[in-house]
């Protein structure tokens, strides 16, 4: 059988990710697509830890750790320096979690997107502040338990639509992806690598400890997120939407929710509410996929 992804690994196995960490799969796949001529900057996020403590690193590319809210601006600075030094072919990436993207890093993200800085901005989205111990973020979905949205007062606000916020900046390329479909992510990155300007990649990355799910269910959950329509996988190239993982027969959201302890307190009505939210969002996106 011919492998569907390059065999070369730029992320070594001695990392500190939890069992079944989606963010680990996201990075591993990303590096396969971007290769060695790539630099990263990370804000405070799970990957601050996953990379390994000083003096260790599990990545075979240069990495600059940075403050929480500064990812996009830092990547823009690295890119400007590489341009000034005549090394403009190197791919420069900001790599942040959902807190660093949806919340504290949103301003810098918007600035870089508006300036159309020639960088990749990755958000690996595990839907809460997982590194600090599972506090709600703007990416936490309706209905979820977190330590700051306890069961009695589970999260009542709908997940912020970061993709629409970024889309409003009209970047040359943006995409969503799921760690269950690495070939899809790979293909998107190979294409985007040659596009100059701001590129936003949003990857749903299940978190077994934070989602109260079994580590062996990570890929299953990442797949169900797509199949239920909770996390539609698509790309937007120069404003044109295309659904890259089609879901003609969407599964009920319950199939996704019931595998996760963070939703176990939900009553039938709550699940129905989530189904309604997902259906409405999906219908909205479907129009864009059809180009209307």
């Amino acid at each position: 059988m011919k492998p569907t992804l390059p065999l070369e690994e730029l992320m070594s196995p001695g990392h500190l990710a939890c069992q079944g960490c989606g963010a680990g799969i996201a990075m591993r796949t990303t590096l396969k697509a971007l290769g060695r001529d790539t630099m990263f900057t990370f804000p405070a996020c799970c990957w601050t830890v996953i990379d390994g403590p000083f003096p260790y690193s599990c990545l075979e590319v240069p990495l600059l750790h940075m403050a929480f809210e500064a990812t996009a601006a830092t990547a823009a600075g690295i890119k400007a320096a590489m341009n000034a030094l005549g090394k403009d072919k190197t791919t420069i990436c900001g790599w942040a979690g959902d807190g660093g993207t949806f919340d504290i890093g949103l301003q810098a993200l918007s600035g870089a997107a508006e300036r159309n800085d020639d960088i990749f901005y990755f958000c690996y989205d595990n839907e809460a502040y997982m590194n600090t111990g599972i506090q709600r973020s703007g990416a936490t979905p309706y209905g979820a338990w977190t330590t700051t949205t306890p069961v009695k007062h589970f999260k009542k606000e709908v997940k912020k639509s970061i993709d629409d916020i970024v889309a409003a900046h009209k970047p040359p390329y943006q995409a969503t992806a799921s760690v269950a479909y690495p070939e899809d992510l790979y293909k998107k990155l190979i294409k985007a690598k040659d596009i100059r300007g701001f590129k936003f990649i949003h990857i749903i990355s299940p978190c077994p400890p934070g989602w109260k799910a079994r580590p062996e269910d990570t890929v299953k959950l990442a797949r169900l997120a797509v199949q239920t329509g909770i996390f539609p996988v698509y790309e937007v190239e120069a404003g044109k939407y295309a659904q890259t993982m089609k879901t003609p027969n969407r599964k009920p959201v319950l199939e996704y929710l019931k595998l996760q302890g963070r939703f176990k307190h939900l009553k039938e009505d709550d699940v129905a509410e989530i189904q309604r939210i997902v259906d409405a969002r999906y219908a909205e996106l479907e129009k864009r996929f059809q180009g209307c």
Binding site: A70, A73, A76, G77, I78, K79, A80, A81, R115
Partner: peptide
């Protein structure tokens, strides 16, 4: 030189940190 017209002073210093780390005089 490259001039990044950032959206805040926080981002100004972040960009300088990124640029200097990559070896440019910032």
């Amino acid at each position: 030189a490259e001039f990044i017209k950032v959206e805040s002073e926080h981002s100004a210093m972040a960009a300088c940190i990124g640029a200097s780390s990559a070896g440019a005089r910032a």
